[in-house]
Design a protein around this nucleic acid. Structure first.
Lengths: 202, 202
DNA sequence: GTCTATAGCCAGATAGAC
DNA sequence: GTCTATCTGGCTATAGAC
């Protein structure tokens, strides 16, 4: 049993390295442009070995998406335990975390357009379960923030939710970082401000 | 000369049909997923004939991007002649127009990530000229709107500009449309409101 | 300038030895 | 489970007749 556990742990470690590479490559060039050969080369194993762990390129990407959602759920869990935070502050903290991940080059871009990845994800239970879980937790905070008057109640909660998801992958962050003129913290502050305060003056 | 002009007009008409198909396919599935075979099939000509008009897939896409920028410049030109509009109202009108184009399925998604298309566009003078022209015109309105107190002056003009470009392709619009629960006008109002007024209550 | 046919290439996936 | 070598299909681009 000890040896089985050890071998399983080795397996997990290797698969974790694979998912990390996939995650980074997805963030850097997207699903279509990423090749399985690149992943294998970066991990340092043969392509055929990858297919012993994951049965397709889509499943490889799905594993990365699932891990990101798990991290987001962990962040949400931590924020939920802090009773001093207002709902809107929790939402802001989640978006801030997502932007930090993106600036670190570790936020895989979501496939908004139709693609083989999108259809694969729509049939992936573990992925959908996490996405639904996260959406429900954020939804609770959204309605609470609208009730306490800190979030615009004229916007349906679903619109707010989709907007938060979109801002987590906001291309503006990457463009500003590519410009190389501003520190990461400054970029985050600007994009967060434009998201919650809007472009119009207050 | 009359016959030459006529033949040229036929050529323009055909090329315009090609660019229209490319534009629609770019909006629907993006550059990587679009195939030259699809374009040829949709236009109703052989693939080899396409390559008599455009030398590569990238140039095909560039032509579509250029036409969108030309349309945006035409909208900007029209708005500039209306002296009754405040600068911020002009900016809002441009974003509204972009969202209408997106809802019509005619807004090609910009290649924010590195790709062969991105590098091709960065070396395409006609494209870059128009992009710069548009950016300068919008930049003028942005600084004017910040000066008259209608736009948040705490955000650098470049941040506002990039944000407006990003909102023109905002995936939230497509997600809400795909849900099929709301009329287009309602979707545009919500997304415009979240962009300029922000998610926080005022 | 249009077509059919095909070259050339590359990426996803697999076979089979070890 | 890892490897090397290969299959397979699809896609960009071109050749060459008309």
């Amino acid at each position: 049993m000890a040896r089985t556990s050890f071998r399983e742990q080795m397996l997990r470690t290797r698969e974790d390295a694979i998912v990390s590479s996939v995650n980074r490559l997805l963030a850097e060039k997207g699903f279509e442009a990423m090749t399985v050969d690149e992943v294998a080369a970066e991990v340092g194993i043969a392509k055929a070995s990858l297919y012993k762990h994951f049965t397709s390129k889509e499943e490889l990407a799905a594993a990365a998406m699932i891990r990101v959602l798990d991290r987001a759920l962990a962040v949400v869990e931590t924020l939920a335990t802090d009773a001093t935070l207002m709902p809107v502050e929790r939402l802001r903290a989640v978006v801030r975390w997502a932007m930090e991940v993106q600036l670190a080059g570790e936020m895989p871009s979501l496939p908004a357009q139709n693609s083989t990845l999108r259809t694969a994800l729509m049939g992936n239970r573990p992925y959908l379960d996490r996405l639904l879980d996260l959406s429900e937790r954020l939804g609770t905070w959204i309605t609470a923030a609208q009730a306490d008057g800190s979030l615009d109640a004229a916007l349906p909660p679903e619109v707010v939710l989709y907007t938060l998801y979109a801002r987590a992958c906001d291309p503006v962050v990457g463009v500003l970082k590519a410009a190389g003129q501003h520190p990461d913290e400054q970029i985050i502050d600007w994009v967060l401000r434009s998201c919650f305060q809007g472009l119009s003056a207050r």
